[in-house]
Design a binder for these strands. Structure first.
Lengths: 198, 198
DNA sequence: TTTTCAAATGAACAATTGTTCAGTTAAATG
DNA sequence: CATTTAACTGAACAATTGTTCATTTGAAAA
């Protein structure tokens, strides 16, 4: 019993990543063994090493492609118009991109400490790039005189924390429809930057 | 070589908790071994079992007393006056209590998934009790007609996420003094509930 | 069909894990 | 002082860890 019927790298690789992501989100990186991941894929532990040189790199790849996908998606989003409209666009983009990716987001925030220093620095820089997207909007609004903000950096971090916190409680089966929640957060963001809500 | 000179439970117990807290904050619960904790205390692994029946209970005790201390501190805080003043009081209380407790806060949010279901439910209830403190203030303000909030529960969660997120970036050596940051957050909270800032 | 090669097995490895416990030592009690 | 008891040691345990590798299998290319 060796090579499985109908198996090749193009199908197994994403399955390894998906299994790792789900298990790490559930139990934490250190608590998940390569054998557990392998079992979820339906393979022996040794086979995983066809797809990653080691466990650490597997984690890094997950976090890195998460940030990569985020920044790529953001890059193609519309970023025009007045500051207030751009702010609204960012809020909606953030919510719509993050909420359906619970496991990825969770792991990306929780497992940073399990990265080697070099790997951590790399992810951290990507994260800062994303934060800078929002801060640039706040700066623009301040420059245009439509936002009133004491400190753009602090406000940026506060807004992002507010948004990212959604992943901790939002459930599709929850009390309120997503569209309404989205409106509430757009409104909160507008207020945070000193714009009167409509 | 057995009992250490000058050692007794009253001194060792808190040292075990402190060592566990610090190591878990740094590496994560699953990644920290009982031997590492013991080494930090200056003791053999077996000795830890004078202070906890097992590793899981050690974690639970840390999280439980964290929430206990939080709720106790909150209970003795001033909770009078108009809604707007109570809101300000809550924000300042939250910041002043949480910021100096980086490790505790970090562990309390990160290691929930490593609790058994019953232990998790217990901690979760305490957390909800704390959140209800804030929501009650929002409801009061809405009832008094001084707050304009679409949904008190959502706004509560958004505010708490915003506040708790501070622990991820605040450093004493940072760019802004804590007093100023506190003002900014009070202002953000006021705006979030629809009160014009002064 | 035969050949080639990618994909997986399964056993093995040294190290480490949480936990137990009989024995040993220092502090507290009389 | 002598006795008791609380605190700790150190070895042991079965299980599990990440990783390696010779071997085997199925799929693709000739």
């Amino acid at each position: 019993m060796a090579r499985k019927t109908g198996s090749h790298a193009d199908t197994t690789r994403p399955r390894v990543r998906a299994a790792a992501l789900q298990l790490i989100a559930q139990h934490g990186f250190a608590a998940v063994s390569m054998r557990q991941i392998a079992a979820k894929v339906g393979v022996q532990a040794g086979a995983l090493y066809n797809y990653t040189p080691d466990k650490q790199t597997l984690l890094f790849d997950l976090l890195h492609s998460h940030m990569d996908e985020l920044l790529t998606a953001r890059a193609v989003a519309v970023r025009e118009g007045p500051a207030c409209q751009q702010l609204e666009g960012f809020i909606r983009f953030h919510i719509r991109w993050h909420l359906p990716r619970g496991d990825q987001v969770f792991v990306s925030y929780m497992e940073l400490r399990n990265l080697t220093p070099e790997n951590f620095a790399q992810i951290e820089q990507l994260r800062r790039t994303y934060e800078d997207e929002l801060e640039a909007i706040l700066r623009l609004g301040v420059a245009q005189g439509v936002f009133v903000v004491a400190d753009t950096k602090i406000t940026t971090l506060a807004l992002i924390a507010m948004l990212t916190g959604m992943n901790n409680w939002y459930r599709e089966s929850g009390r309120l429809p997503l569209a309404l929640i989205e409106e509430i957060y757009v409104d909160l963001a507008r207020r945070a930057v000193g714009v009167a809500s409509d």
